[in-house]
Amino acid sequence: MSVVSEPLLTIKNLTVEFDQGAHFVRALHGVDFVIERGQSIGIVGESGCGKSITWLAALGLLGSKARTGGSVRLDGQEILNCSDRALAHLRGSRIAMIFQDPASSLNPVHRIGRQIGEALRLHRGLTGAAAKAEATRLLDRVGMSNPAQRLNEYPHELSGGMNQRVMIAMALAGEPDLLIADEPTTALDATIQAQILELLNNLRRENDMGLVLISHDLGVVADMAERVAVMYCGRVVEESQVDRLFDAPRHPYTRGLMAALPDIDGPKRRLKAIPGMVPPPRNLPTGCTFAPRCDHATEACASRVPGLRPAGAPRHRAACFHLEDLPGGSRQPASPAQQPVQETV
């Protein structure tokens, strides 16, 4: 804690490889992140881009089948590949994490009170009546009615939104400096989604807590994060301050994601999904992994992997060979003739 000049969390060249029996398959190809105290950063990308494994790897939660490399520093201290015991002390108390499916993320045979109490006991030494009082306060803080009564209930007795509130209360129990929210609202319906996001935002301001918000929905990230990183196939392909990214996305992939975003102001229109699918890690194209789905790809794209480079604004970087020849400026829908149009509800 003494090193104030250090960022809260510094991730450098983080790689993840999974043991597939005969050989290792690389799913994360060296990503960098810097998170300052109290900062919020959004991570977006389609399913399978490596959003989750980045943060699971940082906390050593990927299990023995995964091999991780690079560096993850918390307050300047290396934590990657530390012993499980050392990491257990950090998890929940320095860095907490909540997940996509709140109903199955809570232990079905333990009461809510016990699950929150466990975090209080581990990180703050609270037991008995003190733990109960604090658990009640936390449930109240995350907006649950009848908090004292909820302590005695089981996860299956609560709705998905309620369970996510419990998850958040449990994460707050250790008073973490950083909360990683991995698609916290994907499984919830729209009203609840908005409530949970607002709750996260308030809690972050109140506790000066850093927030990593993972989502495949650019819209969610736009309201919540100061910085945004777009991931594709285990790499960060574009990163920027949030306003700049929305005003002037540079990477064709980011533009594709934006074209698929419903327009809140305008009339309902047909959404354009990016054609093709995210290739699995074991079957990546050579060169730029997005090239096969990209309208602007040239032969050069297939030969080398583009690195992140300045994209026309401070702290805005993108990994594309064609940054200069792409039409600049604001949201630019790709021409309908080239992209199959897909009806989305």
């Binding site: 906390l59 950090l90 998890r91 907490a96 993320s105 466990e118 250790g174």
Partner: peptide, 12 residues
């Protein structure tokens, strides 16, 4: 998932 949650909240 709840096993991952337990690990993520710092349970040894």
């Amino acid at each position: 998932p709840y096993i991952r949650t337990a690990s993520a909240k710092g349970v040894p």
